[in-house]
């Protein structure tokens, strides 16, 4: 039991980062990016190809992060431009349709050009004993990186002027314009950040299990579940929900069966919507 809870925490931290990228984009711009998982997959693939070209793992992973950020920027500059011209639910609906189209474009290309490829960053080293449980070195390193990322995000949003500006757009877009903040620019930065977060998830996940080119929609869907449970637009909610669902997922996988874990998460999301439509920590209605 301790082992699966610990596994769940490792997974939950990654869920949190995954959902943070989705929830920020939604909170800031009312846009849901269904190609989010594909950005992660592309970043992982770029890392893989860079490593195959002879570059060591760490710089290759950094190039993967750049690729994720660049892809986020491309989304902002291309298909999201017409989305920004709409408001309210029409914006969400169009963003769903267009990013779904983009997801198919990426999936179609990857399945054609790189079928069956996957990033697998094996971290060698003796298992570490945590709370009496032997943890694989990959899990330990992945969690370490994820915790650092969460810390950086916390610092960014809590203590920097830029982070405060981004939060202000989420809380009151018109108010943010009145103090001199350009919401469009913030949105662009957040899409880059969201792409980098997707890349981080792909790279840290690949230290625990391979991330193959078909994983795009699974990653998006996992991110969506966590986002819904945590509250659309809430970053702390994303991390809290990530941990809760990570533990649920891990415990359910080891006691009931892996293939049912997604259904259990779906039920968790459905119950959250019914009982508390704004999610655990959501503020927006």
């Amino acid at each position: 039991m301790t082992a699966s809870i610990l596994d769940g925490i490792v997974l939950g931290l990654q869920f949190g980062v995954l959902a943070a990228g989705l929830t920020l984009v939604y909170g800031l711009g009312g846009v849901l990016n269904l190609a989010y998982g594909q950005i992660a997959v592309v970043s992982g693939l770029v890392t893989l190809l860079t490593m195959e070209a002879g570059v060591p793992a760490v710089p290759a992973a950094l190039i993967g992060l750049v690729a994720g950020g660049a892809l986020g920027l491309i989304f902002d500059l291309t298909i999201l431009q017409p989305v920004y011209r709409r408001h309210g639910e029409a914006r969400v609906l169009l963003s769903l349709l267009l990013t779904l189209g983009a997801a198919f474009v990426i999936d179609g290309y990857l399945n054609w050009r790189y079928p069956l490829r996957g990033l697998n960053l094996r971290i060698t080293g003796d298992p570490l004993v945590v709370f009496g449980v032997r943890m694989r070195m990959g899990s330990v390193v992945a969690s370490g990186i994820t915790i650092v990322v969460i810390g950086v995000l916390y610092w960014l949003f809590r203590y920097t002027r830029l982070g405060r500006a981004i939060r202000s757009v989420i809380q009151d877009e018109e108010g943010s314009r009145l103090v001199g903040i350009d919401p469009q620019l913030m949105m662009r930065l957040i899409l880059v950040l969201s792409g980098v977060l997707a890349a981080i998830v792909a790279i840290t996940r690949s230290m625990v299990a391979p991330v193959n080119v078909r994983a795009g929609f699974s990653l998006t869907v996992l991110g969506l579940i966590v986002t819904v449970v945590g509250g659309l637009g809430s970053i702390p909610g994303a991390f809290l929900a990530g941990l809760v669902l990570g533990i649920i997922n891990s415990v359910a996988s080891s006691y009931i069966g892996t293939f049912l874990s997604l259904i259990i998460l779906l039920v968790a999301a459905a119950i959250t919507i019914v009982i508390r439509p704004t999610g655990l920590l959501g503020v927006r209605e």
């Binding site: 769903l96 929609f217 259904i263 209605e285």
Partner: peptide, 24 residues
């Protein structure tokens, strides 16, 4: 359709169901 975010939640929850079904 519980609350005003029906259109968004419909997209999200049906996509989750689609993948859950495939997994199942």
């Amino acid at each position: 359709v519980r609350r005003s975010l029906g259109v968004i939640f419909a997209g999200i929850i049906t996509l989750i169901f689609a993948l859950s079904f495939e997994n199942l």
